[in-house]
């Protein structure tokens, strides 16, 4: 095999460095304020991870494709987090999550099993309060959906439903 044999001293040095960094990160976490703390903590964690990957996982002596594979996962994770946060951090209006307990849409909101008319439309619209045009269009879509739903459940008086439309 072509694998290079690394001296024990190197491994011991890496372990020592990792333990020192562990002490450093705990100390920093105890001393610093929360805002700065997370940046420091993540930077130290990254350094530790890089040490493990390079030395313990032998990427330092690895072929280019192994290095690429090692980087790819983290790069793609950065895409996932980065683009999701692009959305979250630039939403204006209250976050959709601040619905007080108990007032969430009721069971009928899913797929198309009998939506509860106007309430659903309101909710659809309230998800994007900042955008008048999009609210309008949502209400229009909602109305269309309700029409179809009335026809679904109603059957009782389809003629009337059509007359309303």
């Amino acid at each position: 095999m072509s694998e290079q044999i690394v001296p024990v001293k190197t491994y011991a040095g890496v372990l020592a460095a990792l333990l020192v960094l562990l002490v450093a990160t705990v100390a920093a976490g105890l001393i610093e304020g929360p805002g700065l703390g997370i940046t420091t903590a993540l930077s130290i964690a990254t350094v530790k991870a890089v040490l493990i990957v390079l030395f313990f996982m032998h990427v330092r002596h690895g072929s280019p494709i192994v290095r690429l594979a090692a980087v790819a996962g983290f790069l793609w994770l950065a895409l996932l987090i980065g683009l999701s946060m692009t959305d979250l951090l630039t939403r204006d209006g209250p976050p959709a999550t601040d619905i007080p307990a108990g007032s969430a849409p009721d069971a009928s909101l899913g797929a198309n099993s009998s939506p509860t008319g106007p309430k659903m439309v309101e909710q659809l619209a309230s998800f994007s309060p900042r955008n008048e045009a999009s609210s309008q269009s949502l209400i229009a879509t909602g109305t269309k959906i309700i029409d179809a739903a009335i026809t679904t459940q109603g059957a009782a008086d389809r003629g009337q439903a059509r007359a309303v439309r």
């Binding site: 683009l83 692009t86 959305d87 939403r91 204006d92 998800f127 949502l138």
Partner: peptide, 22 residues
Amino acid sequence: GFLVWGHHMFVSGQSVLASLTF
């Protein structure tokens, strides 16, 4: 292909900037 997923969410309440980006 990994950078475009937000176009499924244009009417979901995603931020305008994110929609434009996607």
